[in-house]
């Protein structure tokens, strides 16, 4: 596993829309590298004869009744949006769609 560079973390932070300081970049690069190395060990497990598993708990049919519960107040909902207009989320123009 190649180690994670400071530039990689900066790029990821931008994709995730996270504001990260210079000190944090150094900190996270080191931490994420440890995480990646740990996760990479999964690849060493002998799984040739293990069927793919999507759920680790042997549960089925977990349902909720069809009942309405309160939604979030709109102000709270839109507070998390980078931009809002007319009570809606404002997003950049979408390319390559309907002419």
């Amino acid at each position: 596993m190649s180690s994670l560079s400071r530039t990689d973390v900066e790029h990821l932070a931008r994709l995730a829309r996270l504001a990260v300081t210079d000190e944090e970049l150094d900190l996270f690069a080191g931490q994420l590298d440890v995480v990646l190395t740990a996760v990479a060990r999964v690849g060493e497990a002998p799984v040739a004869d293990v069927p793919p598993t999507s759920h680790v708990v042997p549960l089925t049919n977990v349902f909720r009744p069809d009942e309405v519960t309160p939604s979030l107040p709109r102000d709270a909902v839109l507070a998390g949006a980078p931009a809002a207009e007319d009570d809606r989320f404002r997003v950049p123009r979408i390319l390559q769609e309907e002419a």
């Binding site: 977990v62 349902f63 909720r64 009744p65 069809d66 939604s71 709109r74 998390g80 809606r88």
Partner: peptide, 24 residues
Amino acid sequence: EPNTQTCPVCLGLPGSLPVANEAA
């Protein structure tokens, strides 16, 4: 009214967990 019927689950906010509607 727009965006008055949303919550962490249907907005896909981190940490929210969906549970299927039995009637559906």
